[in-house]
Design a protein around this nucleic acid. Structure first.
Lengths: 339, 339
DNA sequence: TTGAAAGCGCTAACAA
DNA sequence: TTGTTAGCGCTTTCAA
């Protein structure tokens, strides 16, 4: 390990100074073509690779970014990660994974990693900032941070998102247009912003159609399969159960469908179900799930591009949020109600 | 950014040398309790964080590890990533994501990151080493690398895996015990080792039961939904289609079931289907999928623990592979054949 | 176009 | 127990 060649080794063999080697290797154009070639040849021969710690220390950069999510185990993030990774590596950046599991200490920890040079920037998908006070010195708005998916109001940070309200509204309007009147909502973990927005979209659609939301028609889940199931069983214990369900994400929709089947209800014959996210499996699900398609890879790419612009010194903080389009993918889990 | 406090700032205010500060902050026990307390208090007050590049340069460590997979977008890796991440962060390590997409250049690139100090170690889940010759100086067997999931024979590297042959054999034997005789296999991307092993398990079970494998009963997929569908349609175009299917992973099993449904076949009434992996959705799938459960999070944790031992100087290279147990989860996608 | 030299912030050997 | 000092390997002034 210790025998790794360094710039000095190349310099000695090439009969030049370390400065010249550094310049040649960085293609600064300040070195004679001939010398440069000789140095490059030598570097290849010795299988030279610059030591990143040394370079990072000197340049005050790490060439890596932090991707912070609430739960790395959630399949929802896969395509986003993929988009981020691709864009990052094109620009020579590595991606460090951050996983908060809603633990404020860990959220703070990742912000600290920005300060200690671990990473140059961060894509934040937790919808949360570290609790103030703990880091009184932290001027969040001027940190190289892009907020994706979620919204952190009045943080001054740039955002990449989708219009959750409009998308949810369109999803519920689809149910209404099929003739449904008794439509319930399995919400996300309120009062998180995204969950609130999707619920507000539901409410807006109902109100727009002049439909009242009966007591008990809004149940709160946490985006997981199990709560989808649970919420669904609550809804169907009501004296007047719904004929259609709008779940705040696909996973809960899967859980709900699972439960409906257990209760002997046919989908979409007895009950229609709409999800949100369009996980890659939703089209292979039975029945194929009607859901809101989000451009996840695009969200990842866009967020990373934005971050790159910030890292190159561009001021993008005060620009309006970038809103990417969604689309309702109508599949076989929705139909007109019976009778 | 430039006003970040450094050790020197603390030293000045505390009226001690930088060495003392460094020692106090690393709790080396060589500093008076009183001085140490004063220094810690000062560090907290100034919100001091050691610069990682400087530390890394000096200690020749990066405190991060590389997790290299073939496709970051594959949900299969989620729980593994989660296990790796948890174990890594407990030990103070960060996880860098590596994505090769089967590109040899990228595979080599990640090995190079090990050499240039980007990461201290690597968990390799691609089943491949960089092509030899390109890096003549690379003595792979002595690199801090753990191979997980896949097998790289005679690499001299430590392995964490499951017994794919035995698990596949058990899955097929389950079908045989239900009374199936005409059992087809949707294989992975042969000749990759894992795909070969799962196929060999299939063959072993068939042979063990004295069952011939008819021409066309082994079709090659690539672990994706679409090929599961495609392979399935090929199988059911045969003059004598099978009554049961063993797919090399769940995703292809989903695809196959989707296709069977399209062909109007009932599952498991007409055709039984077994998968492999037990993705988190398989139990919510319809019908709930019979499949081989792998301890994915455990694989991640074990691989990372092993890597940590290597990084602490322990020689583990020549130990036999660590083989974690699998279990067949029998659900509703398999039943006895009709008649 | 090149070289000498400083220094990024930290840790650790050696002295005291 | 503490301080002095020498680097880790690199980039980048400043001078030639």
């Amino acid at each position: 390990m210790n025998d790794r060649p360094k710039i000095k080794d190349i310099a000695e063999r090439a009969g030049v100074s370390v400065a010249t080697v550094s310049r040649a290797l960085s293609d600064s154009g300040l070195v004679t073509a001939e010398t440069s070639q000789r140095i490059h040849a030598l570097a290849r021969e010795l299988n030279y690779r610059p030591n990143v710690s040394a370079r990072n220390l000197r340049t005050r950069k790490s060439m890596s970014v932090l991707l912070v999510v609430r739960d790395v185990g959630n399949p929802f993030y896969l395509d986003i990660l993929k988009g981020v990774e691709a864009t990052a590596r094109e620009a020579g950046y590595s991606v460090l994974m951050g996983n908060t599991e809603n633990d404020p200490d860990r959220e703070t920890e990742y912000f600290n990693m920005l300060r200690d040079g671990h990473a140059d920037g961060m894509i934040l998908m937790t919808g949360k900032l570290p609790p103030p006070g703990h880091d009184s010195g932290l001027d969040v708005a001027h940190l190289p941070v892009v907020v994706a998916l979620e919204m952190i109001e009045s943080s001054g940070l740039p955002h990449v998102q989708v219009d959750n309200i409009a998308a949810a509204k369109a999803a519920v309007e689809h149910l209404i247009s099929l003739g449904h009147r008794k439509i319930a909502h399995i919400a996300g973990p309120l009062p998180e912003v995204m969950a609130v927005h999707r619920r507000d979209g539901y409410r807006a659609a109902m109100q727009g159609a002049g439909l009242a939301i009966p007591e008990g028609y809004e149940v709160r889940g946490d985006y997981l399969l199990e709560t989808g199931q649970l919420c669904c069983s609550q809804l169907f214990a009501l004296s007047e159960p719904p004929t259609a369900l709008f779940a705040a994400n696909d996973e809960m929709a899967y859980g709900a469908i699972h439960e409906l089947r257990r209760l002997g209800r046919d989908i979409p014959g007895d009950v229609s179900v709409v999800g949100f996210d369009d996980l890659y499996l939703s089209k292979a699900f039975y029945p194929p799930l009607t859901t809101v398609t989000q451009p996840r890879a695009d969200i990842g790419r866009t967020a990373m591009s934005l971050l790159l612009r910030m890292l190159s010194g561009e001021a993008v903080g005060l620009a309006p949020p970038i809103v990417l389009p969604t689309a309702l993918s109508v599949r076989a889990s929705t139909a007109s109600p019976r009778q």
